[in-house]
Design a protein around this nucleic acid. Structure first.
Lengths: 197, 197
DNA sequence: ACTTCTAAACTGACTGGTCAGTACAAAAAC
DNA sequence: GTTTTTGTACTGACCAGTCAGTTTAGAAGT
């Protein structure tokens, strides 16, 4: 299974993902050329097309991969915790994720609210999966009375997701000198206050 | 000054702004062609170049124009109000602005955190101007004791700005059936809680 | 071992299309 | 009669995607 061939190929794909995510985060999908991606990954252009059907498919698989990791982190973060603590744990997980994959987070923030793009449907779906984890937690909290009864589940969930993203990326882009721990504290404080019954 | 000629020209420029903002919000700057913009504005391509030096300059002037309006709204919103009320008024002004110029808000959200683009410097500057209005209010509130003393002015200001943007656009894109008043209520509630001393 | 053989992985020059920007004569608006 | 807009045609750069050819890993033969 993991002979030299597949390992080599997996390595190439990984390098292409890394190159693509950085460039697209900086410039956007359209402004990033396949030649750029290939050059940054240190492979020939043909290799990109040997490994991915098209530029769009590369990006879609990248989104799937990245958000898949995030969803998994979310799931792990809430596992077995009561609603309030689960919520705080989610915020921590999200920020930790953004810290580790900052380029991907930046990309997500920039492409998330676009319309009329080929991969929009894919992104919408994946976003739904990640947010569903948050929604489950909020729903459980509202049902058990741990969270305010008037909290709208769908709204609160997507707001929580988006707010973490925007606050963290804003910090990274405009105030990179500051440690991420400060954002975490600020956000946790806000979430805690909002979650008060 | 406002003879028929300049008015007509101003009208053309306005139509080009509207066309450009819609297309760029949907597709992004690079994916939007000058031919598209001209067609949507109902104008010949040559007219675009008669009125604007280049596609990039058109976009930069668009940013200047749009954020200029927002900054003016912000200034008007806080004028003469004590810190707490000024803050609530700012949130209302921001959401009102987003409701009126939703395409521009969407565009702003998508392009705000980009790096390595020609117009990035312009955007950074304009963002600073808009946020400065918020910052002045927060600063005054912290100084007078109306707002929590441990509030970091720079952080709180940019967070407030970004959060309004992301929550409103998220609602517009993913839950357009809901009235914006709900977002306003939710956001005001959050801001009020956070602003509590 | 050590040489073939084979298929997978990779290469980079090339193609066809797209697009920003130009040119300019004629028309329309003022 | 001056400014603004139109319409069409054009150029040159750029770029997604292709493909014939090269390299490489490792299997098969000896």
């Amino acid at each position: 299974m993991t002979d030299g061939r597949t390992r080599r190929r997996e390595d190439t794909r990984q390098r292409l993902f890394v190159a693509a995510v950085e460039l697209i985060a900086e410039q956007g999908f359209s402004a990033t050329t396949v030649d750029d991606i290939a050059a940054r990954a240190g492979v020939a252009k043909g290799t990109v097309y040997y490994n991915f059907e098209s530029k769009t498919v590369l990006f879609e698989e990248l989104l799937r991969h990245g958000i898949g990791l995030l969803t998994a982190d979310f799931r792990a973060a809430v596992a077995g915790l009561p609603p309030r603590e689960a919520l705080a744990s989610l915020v921590r997980a999200e920020l930790e994720y953004i810290r580790r994959y900052r380029a991907f987070a930046q990309l997500l923030l920039s492409e998330m609210w676009r319309t009329n793009r080929e991969w929009q449907q894919t992104l919408r779906l994946l976003r739904g999966e990640a947010i569903e984890v948050i929604a489950e937690t909020v729903r459980a909290g509202v049902a058990s009375g741990d969270l305010p009864a008037d909290l709208d589940v769908r709204t609160a969930s997507s707001a929580l997701f988006g707010v973490g993203l925007v606050v963290a990326v804003d910090w990274l882009v405009f105030q990179p000198d500051r440690p991420i721990e400060d954002v975490q504290e600020a956000l946790l404080g806000i979430v805690r206050r909002v979650a008060q019954t």
